[in-house]
Design a protein around this nucleic acid. Structure first.
Lengths: 250, 250
DNA sequence: CGGAAAGTTGACGCGGGTCAAGGAATGTGG
DNA sequence: CCACATTCCTTGACCCGCGTCAACTTTCCG
């Protein structure tokens, strides 16, 4: 090893204001001065490798985490050992809200693709919220989004067919990639069939069969984890009606 | 009508400190002075009748609501008209977090049993949180609980059999009644079979059959909405394994 | 008393879970 | 570089849990 101190990746200076994801992440809607304050509270970590945990169920819950790049999987395990995938976290999205409950994370978060994440300790966040109303509102906004997203998921699992579930999953991924300036129609799945099936409440074989079926129907082309959505509109139509409506009757 | 002004029920003075639910509600863990401040922000409403809405999907979301008595049902409707029950709110529990998302409620909340609720405007809550750290923490705690509860529900809908779902539902109700100093084994269901089935992702007939089955097996006695859990332990055993575990493997 | 809403029960069939076998990609040691 | 194992994915055959349809009963409410 050279005597000169090795440059640690986590010392690389990247500020929230530089981050290309700022408009997806907490700083959204904040002014420069506010972002700077937020910036000081955020700890950037060195990249994490697939299989590493960001946190585990039962760990002391101290921080929110924002994903800068890569992909995380949230899941929890039951006493009898099997796993429930709760969701996937793409760049610009947050995890770790469930640590707020009793000071311990209820779920685990594991890295699917090499990822870099930012940690934001609850205590610092609380302090910042007190001095920065715009941040406070942004945090509340994000919490509301989390709750709403869970509600949509409950609807999906409670009422929808296997086809609709997979279609909704693909449309959701497409939307999220698009909002990150990536292709809405061509991407690689960061997760296994196992994870997809688990997440959607389906058997892995069902997921596989549905991919084959969708391909037959010309909705997409699939090769292992490579996906090309050739008929995104039709997929959206399948999901239509699953979307929340407004108050209809009085 | 008498000339003397009618006493309006919503003018009755009830403070948070008097409320018998305080230790289930926001004031939990707060000192007297803090509770008084909270008290001033809370608007108490006159009792609501079954079928009335606390709020509807699409309404401007301005407040959290705490249930003092009765029971609410949260639900949302899809474009094609059908309903997804998201949960039931018992005394001491809160609804309205999902209005934080974009300033509009994503779900609706309807009264099942004559209920009285307290409204807490977001703006006031935000101000209070800035001056009362204990309240801020309590709010975060409640948000964490909400997220965790949704996660458990995802697990239930994703992985569990019809029997386990109904058992889990009954055990949950039992626990919640018990923590409100009501009987853990004898209660009236505030909701219809329709609502139960919808909530659990089951057909109404399945719910009915399962009640009959559970009765045959001596787990409970049921007559329409009157429930006596005669073997709560066995019900809990059925749910065992659905409960979240700790981190098992390294 | 009549009509509607809620709940129960039975018959039937299908969506999707389970089991099993095999292929394709990736890794590992020789 | 090649055998071999492992993991991931696919595909087929079977079948069961639960949804659907239908008939009936009970309760509720004007």
């Amino acid at each position: 090893m050279p005597a000169r101190k090795k440059l640690k990746i986590d010392e690389i200076k990247v500020s929230c204001s530089d981050c290309s994801l700022a408009d997806l992440c907490l700083p959204h809607g904040m002014d420069a001065a506010d972002i700077e304050a937020l910036d000081k509270a955020v700890k950037r970590q060195s990249p994490l490798q697939p299989g590493q945990h960001v946190y585990r169920a039962g760990d002391a819950g101290t921080s929110l985490f924002a994903v800068r790049s890569g992909c995380l999987k949230s899941y929890c395990t039951t006493e009898d050992g099997d796993e429930q995938v709760l969701g996937f976290t793409l760049p610009g999205e947050l995890v770790g809200l469930d640590g707020l409950n009793d000071g311990h994370y209820a779920s685990s978060s594991i890295v699917l693709e090499t990822s870099s994440v930012c940690a934001l300790p609850y205590t610092q966040l609380e302090n910042l919220c007190n001095s920065l109303p715009s941040l406070h509102r942004q945090v509340m906004h994000i919490i509301g989004k989390e709750v709403t997203a869970d509600q949509e998921m409950l609807m999906l699992l409670g009422k929808r067919s296997a086809e609709q579930r997979l279609a909704a999953f693909l449309v959701s991924l497409s939307r999220r990639y698009k909002s990150r300036s990536l292709s809405a129609t061509e991407f690689n799945l960061p997760m296994s069939r196992q994870d997809i099936g688990n997440y959607l409440g389906l058997a892995i074989e069902t997921v596989s069969r549905l991919f084959a079926l969708f391909q037959e129907e010309g909705l997409l082309r699939v090769n292992r984890r490579q996906i090309v959505l050739t008929d995104l509109d039709s997929l959206k139509v399948m999901v239509e009606g699953c979307r929340l409506g407004r108050n209809t009757a009085s």
